[in-house]
């Protein structure tokens, strides 16, 4: 799988993502500078976490207008696969490649903790190694992860099976009002969403930080292993 990781000024989880990708592919992904105006041949583009442009104006808003995003829109239009994590998810919503927006966490504080995610839609390139209803642990670390969208959009996402992951407790029970299991207060406890063609996935938590038993677990590995299986012909 040929993967590229986009680096904006202020991106800071590109190394975590590179480690995770390398651990499943055996080769280092290429780093793509935000100023690039052409892309190499890639199977997957990852927009990693961080504080692109210092989160100034609005998380992801300035990155959405950087030169490389024009290329990424074209890549998406041609059916390319894109994973956006944390700030990458914010950038995808700001770009309009995914619906909705990420607001300030409901508790108005930055949150760094483990959370549980319930797989809502199996069989996508991002979730194929899970079954619907599987629950896995992953760290999250963000100040603006409170997913919102207008009711029509959310209804459409729910109806068309475009919710990838939902925050839940360890047993898979979802309670939108419970700040322990839905820590940032996301609408319908949505943690990750998919594009209509299911080739673009945005999520707030960091599966890339849980791919090594030394770091406390490998709950995040199935996502990356699944991508390799799906994208290597």
């Amino acid at each position: 799988m040929k993967a590229g990781i986009v680096v904006f000024p202020g991106t800071n989880r590109e190394r975590d993502m590179a480690i995770a990708l390398r651990s499943v592919t055996g080769t280092a992904p290429v780093m793509l500078w935000h100023g690039e105006t052409s892309l190499p041949d890639l199977d997957l583009i990852v927009l990693p976490g961080g504080f692109s442009y210092g989160d100034y104006l609005r998380c992801g808003a300035m990155a959405a207008h950087s030169p490389i995003m024009r290329e990424i829109r074209t890549f998406a239009a041609r059916g390319g696969h894109i994973l956006g994590v944390c700030n990458g998810f914010q950038i995808l919503t700001e770009t309009g490649l995914l619906p909705g927006a990420l607001l300030r966490n409901a508790g108005l504080r930055f949150l760094s903790q483990d959370c549980w995610l319930r797989v809502e839609e199996a069989g996508t390139p991002f979730t194929r190694n899970w079954k619907k209803g599987d629950v896995f642990r992953t760290p999250l670390a963000h100040g603006d992860g409170n997913y919102v969208a207008d009711v029509t959009t959310v209804d459409r996402l729910e109806g068309e099976g475009l919710i990838a992951f939902r925050y839940s407790d360890a047993k898979g029970v979802v309670d939108v009002a419970d700040r322990l299991s839905n820590p940032n207060g996301s609408m319908n406890a949505i943690a990750g969403v998919l594009s209509e063609n299911r080739r673009i996935c945005g999520m707030m938590p960091h599966p890339e930080d849980l791919v090594d038993p030394l770091m406390g677990g490998v709950d995040g590995r199935p996502l990356f292993e699944g991508l390799v299986e799906a994208l290597v012909q």
Partner: peptide, 8 residues
């Protein structure tokens, strides 16, 4: 409130 895992 502190990101303790960045860097992996």
């Amino acid at each position: 409130q502190y990101d303790s895992t960045v860097g992996g």
